[in-house]
Amino acid sequence: MGKLVVVVNVTLDGVMQAPGGTDEDTRGGFRHGGWATPYADHVMAETMGRGMRADGALLFGRRTFEKFCGYWPRQTDGNPYTEVLNRKHKYVASRSLAEPLPWQNSSLLKGDATAAVAALTREVEGDLVVLGSGELVRSLAGAGLVDIYTLSIHPITLGSGTKLFAEGETGYDTLELVDAVPTTTGVIIATYQRRRRASETS
């Protein structure tokens, strides 16, 4: 049985919206897309690459899946992420998509997302890694399903935008820091393990 691992870029004030590009997600009039791009360096690439190469599968919400699907399968520049993302099995939580999905090794989760993911963690060999997918992450966190958060915390505040956790969206969790890697650009790649709630251990 693997762990459910959330991998997210966030700002110091908790915003996770559109880290990669200006047109990635403009919902709510968000104008700061691409805020994470200037902070990429070799330390981040090596650290995240090790995690990506580990055994397991990937999990996406619909919006993030479509963004990734529109970019990564078309890359031919030898980027090591391309091979990993194409090869790994990808599960997609969506009420609007239908199979067959356009990206190789992709499957649509049927029914309630939290129930489907809970079952999936018992079946997948290795970890089940969620990339981005804020709405899905908040649902899974609220259901107590997330085991590990790997947060790339960027030294920038935006003051607006969709946050990883909005007030009242999840139950109370206590996290334990298990690893922290500073990059040359000031990003802290922090890995937190969730401590089980009392109701889950009783």
Score class of each variant (00 low, 15 high):
Glu125Asn: 13
Val137Leu: 13
Leu131Asn: 14
Gly186His: 05
Ile188Val: 12
Thr183Glu: 05
Leu164Gln: 03
Ala166Phe: 04
Val146Lys: 07
Val129Leu: 12
Leu145Cys: 09
Ser152Gln: 14
Asp127Met: 06
Leu136Asn: 02
Ile156His: 01
Thr191Met: 11
Thr174Asn: 01
Leu177Tyr: 00
Lys163Val: 04
Lys163Asn: 01
Ala143Glu: 15
Ala180Asp: 07
Gly186Val: 00
Val181Asp: 05
Thr184Asp: 15
Ala166Gly: 14
Thr157Ile: 14
Tyr172Val: 10
Phe165Asp: 11
Ala113His: 08
Tyr172Asp: 11
Leu140Thr: 13
Ser133Ala: 08
Ala190Ser: 13
Arg122Gln: 11
Thr157Tyr: 05
Val130Asp: 15
Ala166His: 10
Val187Gly: 04
Val124Trp: 08
Thr185Cys: 09
Val187Trp: 03
Pro182Tyr: 04
Leu175Asn: 13
Val117Gly: 11
Thr114Glu: 15
Ser139Glu: 15
Val124Asn: 05
Val117Leu: 11
Thr185Asp: 10
Glu135Ile: 09
Gly126Ile: 08
Gly111Phe: 05
Gly134Ile: 04
Ile156Val: 15
Gly142Ser: 12
Gly186Cys: 08
Glu135Val: 13
Leu164Gly: 00
Leu177Gln: 12
Gly159Lys: 02
Asp127Ala: 07
Leu151Gln: 02
Ser139Lys: 09
Ile189Phe: 11
Gly171Gln: 10
Ala166Val: 08
Pro155Ala: 00
